[in-house]
């Protein structure tokens, strides 16, 4: 792993102000992402997992400056990109791309596939109009679609094919980094595997770096180099794939992993699950101290009052938990 990260995320915070009540008479703050720190290294796949509403997608959007960060820094090529306005951000947009979850709503229904894929190339002036068809053909070939698809419209394509188009569009201006925001969640099981393979092939071919946002831990375990676990807007744990899946330290990570069903009836029969009680608290009023303490089986008094520190307990293994801190210190 290279020493210098491709992207450095420092104390990233994103709060949304929402209006509540029938007439929007009450204001409230959603603490979507709170003080998140991590590095993304060139060529790796870093996954963010967590339950709905934990802020993993918001982290992805804020990191790309698609949503204005409330505070914090995202350093890319020596520049804090979240402080840039849209105009100054534009040269960086080329390098930083995103693939969204729903391939049905992210493609303009009135544009042909060729126009969809060609638009970013023309916008960033990476080719002339004359060179465009050839570029589009090559991009479609990269994602396993025949050239004749360029003249089709999105409604003529299946979900898996549309997701391939979305990936081709993200690849169009030779990015370094792609955020895959639940990019395979909306697809059928048999098609998911095709897209995972495609993403892995493209990573190898172009040396891409992925931030993979997902809730399916079986998939995350398959493709990631490192995995970050989020809970209610904060990172609970971040470690290499091996560390996280064989030695999870945070009680939330443990519960999350034990809840994932395995496709093995024998194993499932004998398996001990650690079932969490209760629901995720509202991000409008996150609990004080450690945000997981309301559901944590080993919560102590300290957890209810003090926010646990984000610490590196062994090389590359970060965790925020008072109990783990006590164990490793003593």
């Amino acid at each position: 792993m290279a020493a210098e990260p491709l992207i450095k995320v420092e104390n990233l915070v994103k709060h949304f102000v929402v209006r509540l009540g029938a007439f929007g008479e009450r204001g409230a703050t959603v603490y979507a992402v709170d003080d998140v720190n991590f590095d993304i290294f060139a060529g790796e796949t870093l996954s963010l997992v967590g339950e709905s509403g934990c802020g993993k997608s918001t982290t992805g959007f804020t990191l790309l400056n698609l949503q204005k960060a409330t505070s914090g820094k995202v350093i890319f090529q020596g520049e804090n990109i979240v402080s840039l306005n849209e105009k100054r951000m534009r040269p960086y947009r080329r390098e930083l791309q995103i693939v969204f979850q729903d391939p049905y709503s992210t493609l303009n229904p009135r544009m042909t596939i060729g126009e969809v894929v060609g638009e970013p190339i023309l916008f960033h002036k990476l080719a002339t109009k004359a060179e465009l068809p050839e570029k589009v053909t090559r991009l479609l070939a990269d994602v396993g679609l025949p050239a004749r698809f360029a003249s089709r419209y999105p409604h003529e394509l299946s979900g898996g094919q549309r997701q391939r188009v979305a990936i081709a569009r993200a690849l169009a201006c030779q990015p370094k980094f792609i955020v895959c925001d639940e990019a395979i969640s909306a697809l059928d099981v048999s098609v998911q595997a095709q897209i995972i393979n495609l993403l892995l092939d493209l990573q190898e071919k172009y040396g891409l770096t992925y931030l993979f946002i997902a809730h399916d831990l079986a998939v995350v375990r398959h493709i990631s180099d490192r995995v970050g676990v989020m809970y209610l807007g904060r990172l609970a744990e971040l470690a290499t794939r091996e560390q996280l899946f064989s030695n999870p330290l945070h009680p939330y990570t443990r519960a999350l992993l034990s809840a994932v069903p395995e496709a093995d009836p024998e194993l499932e029969k004998t398996r001990q699950r650690q079932i969490l009680v209760g629901d995720v608290p509202s991000p409008l009023a996150p609990p004080a101290g450690c945000r997981f303490h309301t559901r944590c089986p080993i919560a102590m008094d300290k957890c209810r009052a003090v926010v646990p520190e984000w610490r590196e307990v062994e090389t590359g293994h970060h965790v925020a938990c008072h109990a783990v801190e006590m164990e490793t210190a003593g």
Binding site: S158, S190, V191, I196, H222, S224, A263
Partner: peptide, 25 residues
């Protein structure tokens, strides 16, 4: 068989190719 093979398993190597079913339903 295809469905079962396309589910990532505990024992898989990282980033090994998943077997997939070509085409769509």
């Amino acid at each position: 068989r295809g469905l079962l093979a396309s589910i990532p398993k505990l024992s898989d190597e990282r980033a090994s190719r998943l077997s997939s079913i070509g085409g769509t339903p």
